[in-house]
Design a protein around this nucleic acid. Structure first.
Length: 819
RNA sequence: GCCGGGAUGGCGGAAUUGGUAGACGCGCCAGAUUCAAAAUCUGGUGAUGGAAACAUCGUGUGGGUUCGACCCCCACUCCCGGCACCA
């Protein structure tokens, strides 16, 4: 009987579809526990690649393992269908985004189905459909009502030739990707979500997420960037307001040698007003990239404004400089420059020959060379008058208090986190439900008028924003005064759609609201699986939305994803596999050659889930060979009619070979179970190979107890079936094993089978392995020590040496320390 | 630049979390089968020296802690991801 995965797998898949096998929402039995497994929403690029295969195989293994454990497992799939690539395809091939997207979805859906994932397709959704985004628009209105959505000016990359806003990705070496024109920065009014209102919760609730990788929580903590400091006000000559700076180092106040302000700071604007040189500099700063990575690597430059601030404690005057490294968007848009104890201020002071007065004496007493670098470590204060001798912490407190008493500072908390800008000047996204009226201003679209439908007859050209010239879309009556008005033409960031889809899956067909009680019942997601590249932004936005939806009464938990598995990327040519990088390997040719089970097995076997993997075809053959061997073993056992034999096993009275097989099988299964629970699936696959090796060691089963053989085979199929479900289900039925393989629990390892009488112990001399010995498992330290010292191979190492110590580690080794 | 991660045979990786490094595969070598090849099966395979027994070296680099370090600590190198408009 040849193994022909093509027909076998497609037949199984048809049966699964016909039986609605994985539709947990409908199939759940009363009182059955629920389990929600979810892989991150894919962008429908048109072709599945190995990164997708890895992601969905992982979530599938987890989903199927939980079916085996008795849960009703909800494992849905859908499409993150808005976004830039559809517009790029339109520019390149003239294809309308809607049509292009739907075709891609169809292709990817059929490819996913061919992989045999245990997905509930009845909950499928695509975010570009009005039935989905109307509820996003509804939510926008709710955010607006609650003051969580607002409009404000901010900077964008502007292509002066194409007259369009560019994504960071579309800026190549400072120039537009299509036009090649140098990119300018332009300030336009945009919509924001007030995620900063939830900063505390987003930070504090990370502590609850103990089933998230610590590294992801760290990244989120750092991104939110909670800091405790002081806002200090300096009075400034010839300027109406005091100049406020935010600092986390009030202890270094006596070391201030300049004040740095952003080019957008009101004082900078006032200073530039009468000074062309300053104006030129500010304009240049504004045309700098706003990307943090560019800001951070830029040369620190500045111009003296000629204005001076008064030091609140010493009354000395301090020059005020406009600098390119202070950002208006963080803190007060101004910093106190302490070159001796801040690296950026230090670089700036060196460049402009500003004084670098030290005020912290390094605690290790070493001579610090301030012409070389800033000292940012611990120490005590010097050159600080009354505060000399205090350590940094005490000084922070004393100086803050002194300033507080003078009324020129407050204690403040700052976050690095900024509000979420959701406006995109693009066509292919969710329209923002706002109407602009000359008389009434920005008026929300009434709920009853939702959805604001995005026209599908547009083919973007890359010039301008298409909606701004689409008269049919633009024209609207003001909801307040009914006069002719214009629609908002900005669409929403696609991160908005992916921030709540996991809840909508639970009630994808629900027409009368955004979410219903099913969403409360099935959320939070028990297990979320996706790439580390989403560790910060997507996961933070989704966490924010979850809390908002909770506060609106639509959900009843604090966090969306209880457990998180961040899979490593599948890389090729030194970069993550993605269509935009042009380095994709698609699974379809491999499936045609080897079948889906082989591809699934291989991608799981290739390495631990969290680790990046370099794609290589080498090794797929081995996975296929293994499944062929499994297939022929299954058929060999079927011929022995193992289904009809008595299943009772009396372990103690088994023959030696059967006892040995049973020992191996139970040990391997126990190990596989541990690994499965640790989500170390690659070693579960190894365990399957090991067990098959054990089972096929004997050419003939004549001298083995067949009940033991069947039990081992059942264990093997159980542990493999989450990874390679088609072949396992086929063999399970062929061998007439009991129950449905999908929902049958794993073999419970028998402690008796796993017991061993004796173990191999290592004998080390000075930590080097010199000999091995076989000793009883329960041998005590004295026996082990004596046995080691008496071991014939050990003698020669002990000749004319003195034994100084003997370390005995039960069940492992004896280490003899000699000199 | 900042934040996070990684580095183990020719290759992917394993190692009970401080206790016998290299499980399980790939590749390669040899043998069986075959007219021959493919497929399949059996055995071998970290490096160096040795006929062998065995010895020495060996987990990115340099140091440290320990009876004992892939694992813990310190300092580095290189690679990957994220850095707010790619998703």
């Amino acid at each position: 009987m040849d193994y022909s995965p093509q027909s076998l797998e497609t037949q199984r898949q048809s049966r699964w579809t016909a039986d609605k096998r994985f539709e947990a929402l409908h199939k759940r039995k009363p009182n059955q526990d629920t389990y929600y497994a979810l892989a991150m929403l894919p962008y429908p690029s048109g072709e599945l690649h190995m990164g997708h295969v890895r992601n969905y195989t992982l979530s599938d293994v987890i989903a199927r393992y939980h079916w085996q454990k008795g849960f009703a497992v909800f494992h849905p799939m859908g499409w993150d269908a808005f976004g830039l690539p559809a517009e790029n395809a339109a520019i390149k091939h003239g294809l309308p985004p809607y049509q292009w997207t739907l075709e891609n979805i169809d292709r990817m859906r059929s490819q996913l189905k061919r992989l045999g994932f245990a997905l509930d397709w009845s909950a499928e959704l695509a975010t570009c459909e009005p039935s989905y985004y109307r509820w996003e628009q509804w939510l926008f209105l709710k955010l607006l009502e609650r003051g969580l959505a607002y409009k404000q000016e901010s900077w964008v990359n502007w292509d002066p030739v194409d007259q369009t806003v560019l994504a960071n990705e579309q800026v190549v070496d400072g120039c537009g990707w299509r036009s090649g024109a140098p990119v300018e920065q332009k300030k336009i009014a945009q919509w924001f979500f007030k995620i900063t209102d939830y900063a505390d919760q987003l930070l504090n609730d990370l502590d609850q997420l103990d089933a998230w990788p610590e590294q992801v929580r760290d990244m989120q903590r750092n991104w939110i960037g909670h800091s405790q400091g002081s806002t200090i006000h300096f009075s400034v000559d010839n300027y109406k307001n005091p100049l406020s700076v935010y600092t986390t180092r009030p202890d270094t106040l006596m070391g201030v040698s300049f004040i740095g302000i952003a080019a957008d700071h009101p004082l900078a604007i006032q200073a530039a007003d009468k000074n062309p040189e300053l104006k030129t500099f500010c304009d240049a700063c504004r045309n700098n990239s706003v990307a943090e990575r560019d800001q951070a690597t830029m040369n620190k430059e500045g111009k003296n404004t000629g204005y001076t601030a008064i030091h609140p404690l010493t009354q000395k005057t301090i020059p005020i400089w406009i600098t390119n490294y202070v950002l208006m968007s963080y803190g007060e848009g101004a910093v106190m420059g302490v070159p001796a104890h801040d690296e950026r201020d230090h670089a700036f002071a060196l460049r402009y020959a500003l004084p670098i007065p030290p005020v912290i004496l390094p605690s290790d007493d070493s001579k610090w060379d301030y012409t070389e670098a800033a000292y940012t470590g611990s120490g005590s204060l010097i050159n600080s008058g009354d505060f000399n001798g205090l350590n940094i912490e005490a000084a922070k407190e004393s100086i803050s208090k002194a300033l507080l008493d003078l009324g020129c500072a407050e204690l403040t908390t700052q976050y690095r986190l900024r509000d979420w800008g959701i406006s995109r000047q693009r066509y292919w996204g969710t329209p923002i439900p706002i109407i602009y009226c000359d008389d009434c201003g920005a008026v929300p679209v009434p709920e009853s008028d939702l959805p604001v439908v995005l026209p599908t007859d547009i083919v973007p050209t890359g010039e301008g924003s298409p909606l701004t010239s689409h008269e049919e879309f633009l024209a609207a009556a003001c909801p307040k005064c009914q006069k002719p008005a214009r629609r908002e033409t900005d669409t929403m960031d696609t991160f908005v759609e992916s921030s709540w889809y996991y809840a909508r899956y639970c009630c994808a067909q629900y027409q009368d609201g955004m979410l219903n009680d099913d969403a409360k019942e099935w959320t939070p997601v028990n297990q979320y699986v996706g790439g580390v590249e989403h560790a910060v932004m997507h996961l933070l936005y989704a966490r924010f939305f979850h809390k908002v939806l909770r506060d609106l009464g639509l959900l009843n938990s604090d966090e969306p994803f209880t457990q998180l598995l961040t899979q490593g990327m599948v890389c090729k040519d030194g970069a993550k596999m993605s269509k935009s990088k042009g380095n994709v390997v698609t699974p379809i040719p491999l499936i045609e050659k080897y079948g889906a089970d082989t591809v699934r097995f291989f991608i799981i076997f290739a390495g631990p889930p969290q680790q990046d993997m370099l794609w290589s075809d080498a090794g797929v053959d081995g996975a296929h060979r293994f499944l062929k061997r499994l297939w022929s073993l299954g058929h060999a056992l079927a011929e022995l009619k193992i289904s009809s034999i008595d299943s009772n096993i009396d372990h103690d009275n088994l023959d030696a070979n059967s006892k040995q097989l049973r020992h191996e099988a139970h040990s391997i299964i126990a190990q596989a179970k541990t690994d499965m629970d640790k989500q170390q699936f690659n070693t579960v696959a190894s365990a399957g190979m090991k067990l098959l090796n054990q089972l096929s060691k004997n050419d003939s089963y004549a001298n083995l107890n067949l009940a033991v053989v069947r039990e081992s085979m059942q264990g093997l199929l159980s542990l493999l079936s989450p990874i390679t479900p088609h072949i396992c289900e086929e063999l399970w039925e062929l061998l007439q094993l009991p129950g449905d393989i999908l929902t049958t629990a794993w073999l419970e390892p028998d402690p008796k089978a796993m017991q061993q009488d004796s173990l191999e112990y290592a004998i080390q001399i000075n930590g080097k392995l010199r000999a091995r010995m076989q000793q009883p498992v329960d041998a005590n330290k004295e026996i082990l020590e004596k046995a080691a010292l008496d071991h014939p191979d050990v003698e020669r190492y002990l000749a004319d040496k003195t034994i100084r110590r003997v370390i005995v580690v039960p069940k492992r080794l004896v280490n003899i320390v000699v000199s």
